[in-house]
Amino acid sequence: MIHVTRSIVLDEDDIEISFIRASGPGGQNVNKVSTAAQLRFDLAKAPCLTGEVRERLERLAGRRLTSEGVIVITANRHRTQERNRADAIERLLDLVREAAVLPVKRRPTRPTLGSKRRRLEAKGRRATVKNLRGSVPSD
């Protein structure tokens, strides 16, 4: 069991990790060893997530979410399987923590009297500057 927040606990059986060959520099090691971790987390089969958290998580996952509803995270920052595995799990937990936070609802406000006054004064100054740019009357 992985504790994400007080109310959200992920079961380790819901997370599937496989190792693939990493791209990029690394010499002969990168061609021989599968060190990159690919984490797969099925949102539909995760009973620990509420509907609201699941919806926000789908939105936050973006292109990491497949059409089947599986989040795929590939971690290849490090040279070892253990560190890439830990990195992939931490990135999933960060996503779930971010989705668990309720968005703050916008409360409409009105402009203050001072801000209205400043805006109108600025408009007046700008209009004066533009009027002064006009052609000079000839006598």
Score class of each variant (00 low, 15 high):
N29I: 00
K32G: 00
V33Y: 05
V33I: 07
A36C: 06
A37C: 06
Q38I: 05
Q38E: 15
R40V: 01
R40H: 12
R40T: 02
F41C: 03
F41H: 07
L43F: 08
L43N: 05
L43C: 11
A44V: 05
A44M: 01
A46D: 04
P47F: 04
P47H: 08
C48Y: 02
L49R: 03
T50W: 00
E52D: 13
E55D: 14
R56F: 02
R59C: 09
R59F: 11
R59K: 15
A61R: 08
R64D: 10
T66N: 10
S67C: 07
S67I: 11
E68W: 03
E68Q: 13
E68G: 01
I71R: 02
V72S: 07
V72R: 11
N76F: 11
R77T: 11
H78A: 10
T80C: 10
T80S: 15
T80I: 09
Q81W: 09
E82S: 13
R83S: 14
D87H: 13
E90K: 11
E90D: 14
D94V: 11
D94N: 14
L95P: 03
L95D: 06
A100T: 11
A100E: 13
A100K: 09
V101E: 15
P103R: 04
P103H: 08
V104W: 08
V104N: 08
K105H: 13
K105D: 12
K105N: 10
R106K: 14
R107M: 08
R110E: 08
L113A: 15
G114K: 13
R117D: 14
